[in-house]
């Protein structure tokens, strides 16, 4: 990943994450198919809701005939981390128009956020509308198409995990967190490593007493507060 911030560079930079989208997207399509969702519903979820983990949860809640209110609350909780990520990312686009800010915000995901944070380490803290839009659009289209293809293949593939594609997403986050660790000169390696250990330990303890999505949020916020205090003490 170089310092260039053009649309074309955005497309190239987002390519490694595409594997994760294809793997998990196909898996979602297959799950949705076996949960008796039609292609139209799968496409609606992917192109309108567009929220990876929330889509799996919505699918299982639809299957269980949970009330609409419960589905809405779960979706909000699972996606509440988007509020943190968007607030963080928005700082890089303050100079852009409101419309451009809203366009970027509409398609932000865990992956394109993480990618952008890696990118700005290489560009002295700058990001561009063109670069971010390219990353967002490629991710959006690949995810939507992969889920619909998965739903169409549905019955044909017995075990989509056999070839290890479900690990693509985890591998991608491992790669992104490592690249973040070594390239964020602002925070530095030892501070970040300490915060990482704190978050891992907090998450490990929290999932015993609360849902994974809630634990993810609490561990993240606690990690940020811990980091802030630690930085002050140095």
């Amino acid at each position: 990943m170089g310092p260039s911030l053009t649309f074309r560079t955005g497309v190239r930079d987002v390519l490694p994450t595409v594997f994760g989208y294809i793997g998990v997207g196909l898996a979602f399509g297959i799950v949705a198919h076996t949960s008796h969702l039609s292609l139209l519903v799968v496409a609606g979820l992917s192109f309108i809701v567009y929220a990876g983990s929330a889509q799996f949860i919505i699918t299982s809640m639809l299957l269980l005939h949970d009330p609409l209110s419960a589905i809405f609350i779960s979706t909000f909780l699972v996606n509440s981390r988007m509020i943190l990520m968007s607030t963080s990312l928005a700082q890089y686009f303050k100079h852009e128009s409101l419309l451009r800010n809203l366009l970027i915000g509409t398609l932000v995901t865990d992956e394109t956020f993480a990618l952008a944070m890696n990118k700005q380490n290489k560009t002295h803290g700058r990001l561009s509308f063109a670069w971010q839009s390219a990353a967002n659009l490629v991710a959006y289209l690949v995810w939507g198409v992969a889920t619909v293809v998965g739903a169409m293949l549905g019955g044909l593939i017995a075990d989509p995990t056999r070839f290890g594609f479900d690990f693509a997403l985890t591998a991608m986050f491992i790669g992104l967190v490592y690249l973040q660790l070594i390239s964020d000169k602002h925070l530095g390696m030892s501070l970040q490593l300490t915060v990482m250990l704190f978050v891992a330990l907090a998450y490990y303890l929290l999932i015993a007493v609360m849902s994974q999505n809630f634990a993810l949020m609490v561990a993240t916020v606690a990690g940020c507060l811990f980091g802030m205090e630690l930085k002050k003490c140095r």
């Binding site: 943190l84 963080s88 967190v177 990482m196 978050v199 561990a219 940020c224 507060l225 980091g227």
Partner: peptide, 16 residues
């Protein structure tokens, strides 16, 4: 606070 969001959220997602 927000400067710690990338490293914390990515760590938590890995832990997941």
């Amino acid at each position: 606070f927000l400067s710690f969001v990338p490293i914390t959220i990515m760590t938590a997602l890995c832990c997941e």
